[in-house]
């Protein structure tokens, strides 16, 4: 049985880590981009960002003043039991979000869309979002917090089979060029792409591809992995870099996730996880151990399952 106080204290630690510590995979990716960048202004910007990550960690302060919109992804092993059940879990995550907003501090970004009411704690109607996944075997829960930033850099379009890869490339470039101007997308970023599903599923897949997969990770489908490489290169050859200045750093990595869609369509969404790609993860085991990491390991074979039943043998291996 996993205690609810442990869930809340772990969640508060995650909120702090996400806001302050740039994940290692993204940092390494940005260093590689900075080394390759030859645009004067773009280079200056990337060097300033690297200094900024160090300053954030050293001073224990948020790396960006816009600390994004905190949200939670909870993945539960099939044998996990939480004291008080899922209702208590949700309350603990909401309490942790509110308390970390003043203790870190984070910017209280969340307001009512019409009345602009601000509770000054990042909690409100539907906020923070809490999404769930399950995994065969295991008595653990994974808590993942993502504080995605940015009002810019995300778009959706209904494409069709006849648009093909050429159409995918066009919409990908359109999204980067449109939102990259003046650096509105806060590039270079991890770009997530959702293909297929339905409109809502496509947005969810793309956002998760951006926020729940790490730099260097590749889709298990070899041809999709190739497309990820190709789109990354395409984005970095626009001639645009950080802040929309002349350069070649737009995409730190490109991650694609797919879902089966209507036979006549090919939905596509594009999501930019910004320069402050805030994510932090902890696994809480049934015996109370807590292990922190930065890789959500969200997209397992089980999460991408495509057959009617998940084979029993795999269920048992956990």
């Amino acid at each position: 049985m996993i205690g609810i106080d442990l869930v809340q204290s772990t969640a508060e630690t995650l909120m702090r880590k996400a806001a302050i510590e740039i994940p290692d995979d993204y940092l390494a990716g940005l260093k590689t981009a900075a080394a390759a960048e030859d645009g004067d202004l773009s280079s200056f910007v990337l060097e300033a960002m690297l200094e900024n990550y160090a300053a954030a960690k050293e001073d224990s302060r948020a790396m960006c003043g816009d600390t994004g919109c905190p949200r939670w992804y909870v993945k539960m092993g099939n044998e996990a039991r939480i004291d008080g059940g899922p209702i208590a879990l949700e309350a603990a995550l909401r309490r942790a979000t509110a308390s970390a907003t003043s203790s870190v501090p984070l910017r209280p970004n969340r307001v009512h869309p019409l009345w602009r009411t601000d509770h000054d704690n990042n909690v409100g109607i539907g906020a923070p979002e809490i999404e769930y996944g399950f995994e065969p075997g295991g008595d653990w829960i994974d808590l993942v917090t993502v504080h995605k930033g940015g009002l810019f850099g995300t778009d959706y379009r209904m494409l069709f089979p006849s648009d093909g890869i050429q159409g995918i490339k066009r919409f990908f470039l359109d999204s980067l060029v449109a939102f990259g101007k003046r650096g509105l997308a806060c590039q270079p970023a991890i770009i997530g792409i959702g293909l297929g599903g339905s409109k809502d599923a496509c947005m969810v897949l793309g956002k998760r591809a951006a926020c729940l997969r790490v730099v260097g990770d590749r889709n298990p489908d070899a041809k999709i992995a190739e497309l990820e490489d190709e789109l990354k290169d395409l984005g970095n050859n626009i001639g645009m870099g950080a802040m929309g200045f002349v350069g070649k750093s737009m995409v730190i990595d490109c991650n694609i996730e797919v879902g089966y869609c209507h036979t006549g369509g090919m939905q596509m969404s594009v999501h930019a996880f910004c320069l402050s790609s805030r994510r932090a993860v902890a696994r809480i085991y049934g015996d109370g151990r807590v292990a922190y990491r930065t890789d959500p390991q969200w997209f397992t074979d089980y999460q991408r399952r495509e057959t009617v039943e998940w084979p029993q043998a795999q269920t048992k291996s956990g």
Partner: peptide, 11 residues
């Protein structure tokens, strides 16, 4: 600059 040199500005 960046955008997001929030920690440097905080200093």
């Amino acid at each position: 600059v960046g955008y997001g040199t929030g920690a440097l500005l905080g200093r």
